[in-house]
């Protein structure tokens, strides 16, 4: 049994500590908003927050989380998260939507550190998140909108 603090709750997960956090979240806690895209940290679909920092859950071992607090798309809250979600909805960023949990988790991470990101800041923070539908233009615009609403 591995203890896991996620979205403000504590769980006991009966799984191999070597298991990537992604699969513990999806298959054992049945929280499916966090997505599998590549398994090798190339796409960012699995992005969650570990103590507020975006991490790729496909490369984070369950046994390594320890006392760290995990937040998934289902558990995000606060002004930055709300600003991001609102901007995503107002601009209708999503197409297939599958990568967008990860996109939003990265965007929330960016805006939590940097309330007025430049285009270059957005490139740097978001280049690890792939969207095959190609919604990047709206993601960029939504991040700028969210930043404005937080100012």
């Amino acid at each position: 049994m591995t203890k896991l603090t996620l979205n403000g709750r504590t769980y006991e997960v009966d799984a191999d500590p070597e298991m990537p956090l992604l699969w513990a979240i999806r298959d054992h806690l049945n929280l499916t908003g966090t997505k599998y895209g590549c398994g090798i940290a190339q796409c960012g679909a699995c992005t969650v927050h570990l103590d507020g920092q975006p991490v790729r859950s496909c490369q984070t071992r369950l046994g390594d989380v320890g006392e760290g607090k995990i937040t998934t798309i289902e558990g995000i809250s606060g002004p930055v998260a709300e600003a991001v979600r609102t901007a995503w909805r107002q601009l209708d960023v999503v197409q297939c939507g599958y990568c967008q949990s990860g996109q939003m988790m990265s965007a929330i991470g960016l805006l939590s550190e940097n309330r007025k990101p430049s285009d270059a800041d957005i490139d740097a923070a978001m280049d690890g998140n792939v969207c095959r539908c190609g919604t990047y233009q709206r993601i960029r615009a939504a991040i700028h909108d969210a930043a404005r609403s937080l100012a």
Partner: peptide, 13 residues
């Protein structure tokens, strides 16, 4: 848009 921005949209996976 709503279901795809809060993790509730259900995909086959």
């Amino acid at each position: 848009s709503n279901a795809k921005t809060d993790g509730s949209a259900v995909y086959a996976l």
